[in-house]
Amino acid sequence: MSEGRRLYLDGVSVVFDGFRALNNLSLIVEPGELRSVIGPNGAGKTTMMDVITGKTRPTAGKVLFGETDLTRMDEAGIANLGIGRKFQKPTMFDALTVFENLELALKAPRGPIACLRWKLNGEARTRIEQTMAEIGLTERAQDLAGILSHGQRQWLEIGMLLMQDPELLLVDEPVAGMTDSETEHTAALLVRIAGRRSVVVVEHDLEFVRALGRRVTVLCDGSVLSEGSIDHVQNDQRVIEVYLGR
């Protein structure tokens, strides 16, 4: 029965001191699907990401990745299962270079001894170089991540996500602070990635969501308000009331 679902959230609730950040949320993401998630501030978008990646434990409900129950695992374990996350505020390691950031993210054994013995081989170098080319940071390879511009940081973090080679990518506001052409480039990249992997994108920018052109889920007050194509949700009366209409 798990055929045709990559990520399965069923009746997930998260309660912080009486506040229901997620309220009986259910969501299914299929393999290779690109899903956009939108919703007003406080709708629970980031909390949903936190639950999937193990940062927050749900108060109730099921969270399955394939057949694996994610609610019992920690962040590192979940990441190693093949779930990568890009944060709303780009987060990377400022004291390391662009190349080193990507190298740390590269899928490889993660233990202390393995890291100690790690040698950068040709294959790994090629992958890192390809990714740098893809995110347009080849020229900046030896620069510290701390001196990159905001847009470049967004790109670097997307690059790190690609290096992890995850089956499911959770991408939180990838185009915040990007120029129009960068935004287009990002949309194209995400569409290209989906197909081989599942991608969940949280965005405020409706034009961007339209550019992605796939299934959209609208969250409100911690649960799903509407789901379907961008035209469908934009014409949904309830969505217009709580979100688009304002």
Binding site: T53, K55, D74, E75, A76, G77, A79, N80, G84, R85, F87, T91, M92, F93, D94, A95, L96, E100, E103, L104, A105, R110, G111, P112, C115, L116, R117, W118, M160, Q164
Partner: peptide, 27 residues
């Protein structure tokens, strides 16, 4: 080594290192 870079990464942003799949406790 890469281990040293993991350590500095933990020093500067430990939770981010966890989301990359490193068990920071063991490091």
């Amino acid at each position: 080594s890469k281990y040293g870079r993991v350590l500095t990464a933990i020093r500067d942003a430990e939770s981010r290192v966890r989301f990359l799949g490193y068990n920071t406790t063991s490091h």
